[in-house]
């Protein structure tokens, strides 16, 4: 199969969908400039012009609502945010309107807005230009949220998004745009809620999304050198989450490490741990480990940034520690309340 980069795959999906569906309008700040949002919107602009590929004013708050109003009247806005951090300004339209539109009007109509948000991790993007918002978006019923890791999924999930009758948030890590992979030429949709076994293995499960899938694959390679067979689950969608694939993998391996580009607390990694704890608790032969950034905003200074962002090495270490803990016998820990007496 021919290969495309991640950004070429997004561009191709956009052009193919816009050809098939004249109601799609691509809108965002500078979608029509020479950079074309990392090469993802330039082809569409060349093909369809400013009538369908629109530069918009700086007003994320209103534009989220404008997109909802247009979508509820039959238009299909594909909105691009060059940093997902800017989407904080669009939260009212996303959460209070798009996500709830069908439900709160009693299943009458819908507002199928598609929003792409780009995560700018690395190179000193710092506290407000490098956040990964999958956990935030994943929290709200009524949305689909996807985090494609491969070029084929970047294309396929965007196609599904532009055909859905439900609002969709697609999160793209800037570090992935140059990545090459096999991509079908035809518009093949990738369904929401179906994960992908990025690498099969028997000893430990690493669940990851977006960029961390690649870090996990690199870790799995290193682990193989240590005689450890790691399985990498690329969830592809955050909401709905492929609970079954995660649980089946953990049931097989008995060990779970979750790797995420965002914080542990209340995050994607917490959700995966909860899904396993609720569904297959008996399968776990060691405690779950979460590999995430530490609990502080993203710094800029190089050594601090390197320490902040977890990668393959951190995942590898976490896996080895998890497996060793499983081999040793875990001592019994007394209930923290045992022997407790007042005063309260």
């Amino acid at each position: 199969m021919r290969k495309l980069t991640y950004s070429q795959a997004i561009s191709e999906a956009t052009v193919q969908c816009m050809e098939a569906d004249p109601s799609i309008v691509l809108a965002g700040q500078s979608v029509d400039d020479h950079k074309g949002v990392y090469g993802t919107t330039g082809d569409a602009f060349a093909r369809f012009g400013s009538a369908r590929v629109m530069d918009i004013p700086n007003g994320e708050n209103a534009f989220a609502g404008i997109a909802v109003g247009a979508a509820s009247m039959g238009l299909r806005p594909l909105v691009v945010h060059t940093r997902d951090d800017f989407m904080f300004l669009a939260m009212d339209g996303i959460f209070n309107l798009a996500a709830k539109w069908r439900y709160m009007y009693g299943n009458r109509g819908s507002a199928p807005v598609v929003m792409r948000g780009i995560i700018g991790r690395g190179w000193g993007q710092g506290a407000t230009h490098s956040q990964s918002l999958q956990s935030l978006f994943g929290h709200f019923p009524g949305l689909y949220v996807a985090t494609p890791a491969s070029p084929a999924d970047a294309k396929g999930l965007l196609i599904s998004a532009l055909r859905a009758d439900t609002p969709v948030i697609l999160l793209e890590n800037r570090g992935l745009y140059g990545l090459e992979g096999e991509v079908p030429e035809e518009p093949v949709a990738v369904p929401f809620g179906k994960g992908r076994i990025a690498r099969a293995g028997d000893d430990i499960t690493i669940v990851a999304a977006s960029l961390m899938v690649h870090e996990a694959e690199r870790a799995a390679e290193v682990l193989a050198g240590h005689g450890v067979s790691a399985e990498v689950v690329d969830v592809r969608s955050i909401r709905p989450l492929d609970d079954a694939m995660i649980c089946e993998s953990v049931a097989k391996t008995g060990h779970l490490v979750v790797a995420d580009t965002s914080w542990a607390r209340y995050g994607f990694s917490a959700e995966v741990a909860a899904v396993v704890a609720e569904n297959v608790p008996q399968a776990l032969r060691a405690p779950v480990r979460r590999v995430t950034p530490p609990d502080c905003p993203a710094p800029v200074s190089w050594p601090l940034e390197n320490a902040f962002n977890p990668g393959a090495e951190t995942i590898t270490r976490a896996c080895l520690e998890t497996l060793r803990a499983a081999q040793d016998s875990v001592p019994e820990i007394e209930d923290v309340m045992a022997g407790f007496i007042g005063p309260y």
Binding site: V68, G69, M73, L75, D92, N96, W101
Partner: peptide, 21 residues
């Protein structure tokens, strides 16, 4: 079309409907 309870948000939604028209 719709009413909603967050102050001002329907101003943008109506603008979006007008954009579609």
């Amino acid at each position: 079309a719709a009413s909603s309870a967050i102050l001002g948000e329907m101003i943008s939604v109506a603008t979006g409907a007008a954009w579609a028209f």
